[in-house]
């Protein structure tokens, strides 16, 4: 372990500049105005602004003009979708999916190296089932995880083999590429022997994948035969549900 890092002055100052731009009534300030407000030398402020401009956190209307907050900053601020919000918006559509597919439905988001289950609808047969909202699933052995990684980042860490069908890194990379093409994913015996899952991406109004919705159950019910991918009829139900939730996210919030 190295030494504990102290605050980095330039990052601190950059944050002060951004805060000032966010709260300055006019939302546009000149180098001089910022320097005065923060009690800094003009060249220092200029250097900070140039760097922030390069990464898109601030922008200028015209060369040499006043500065305002940049578009990249807003994208960072809104790309995070509250999991509870996602559940509220998805409630009706995940119920419909469970009814049509007659299987359990889960909605997942990435949480570090795992898939966090933010919503779970029981298989509609009134059998005893335990609510798994809040549970973590391995990304590489579930359809939900493959969708989230295909449209997100490949997490670090070991890929544990749960069954003899769990994919290794090379097979997984190919599978994830395929998911990007097809826009849906499946797992077959990869987490639990005899079980399969199907999932599709949920997108917000900018087209960013913010979650995945899917069904899971025994291969006898999901697949034509134990070594074939899940039936296309079920895939179409899952994709339709994903589109409906995506449409809901593009609309007005309640």
């Amino acid at each position: 372990m190295g030494c504990v890092p102290g605050p980095i002055q330039s990052i601190h100052r950059a944050a002060e500049v951004l805060k000032l731009l966010a709260h300055g009534g006019a939302h546009q300030l000149s180098v001089g105005e910022i320097a005065r407000a923060l009690d800094l030398a003009k060249p220092t402020v200029h250097g900070i602004l140039r760097t922030l401009q390069e990464v898109g956190f601030v922008e200028q209307e015209v060369e040499g003009g006043k500065y305002r907050l940049g578009a990249a900053l807003f994208q960072i601020g809104t790309s995070y979708l509250d999991g509870n919000e996602l559940r509220a918006k998805a409630l009706n559509w995940s119920d419909s999916l469970a009814m049509r597919a007659r299987e359990a439905v889960r909605i997942g988001v990435m949480h570090g190296r795992h898939v966090l289950v933010v919503h779970h609808v029981f298989r509609p047969d009134n059998s005893r089932q335990a609510l798994e909202t809040g549970a973590l699933l391995p990304w590489h052995a579930t359809a939900l995880g493959k969708v989230l990684v295909a449209f997100g980042e490949w997490p670090d860490g070991e890929l544990r083999a749960f069954t003899r069908h769990t994919l290794d890194a090379a097979a997984l990379a190919a599978a994830v590429d395929e998911v990007r093409d097809r826009d849906w994913a499946y797992d077959l015996h990869e987490l639990v022997e005899g079980e399969a899952s199907v999932a599709a991406p949920i997108r917000d109004r900018r087209g960013v994948v913010v979650g995945a919705v899917g069904i899971s159950g025994p291969v006898e019910r999901l697949c034509e035969s134990p070594d074939r991918p899940p039936r296309l009829e079920l895939v179409s139900y899952v994709r339709e549900a994903a589109r409906s939730v995506s449409r809901e996210l593009g609309g007005l919030s309640w």
């Binding site: 119920d95 469970a98 009814m99 779970h120 609808v121 029981f122 509609p124 047969d125 009134n126 089932q129 609510l131 909202t133």
Partner: peptide
């Protein structure tokens, strides 16, 4: 109608 009722979640 009772046959249409299914449990979606239980706490």
């Amino acid at each position: 109608l009772k046959a249409n009722w299914h449990k979606a979640a239980e706490w």
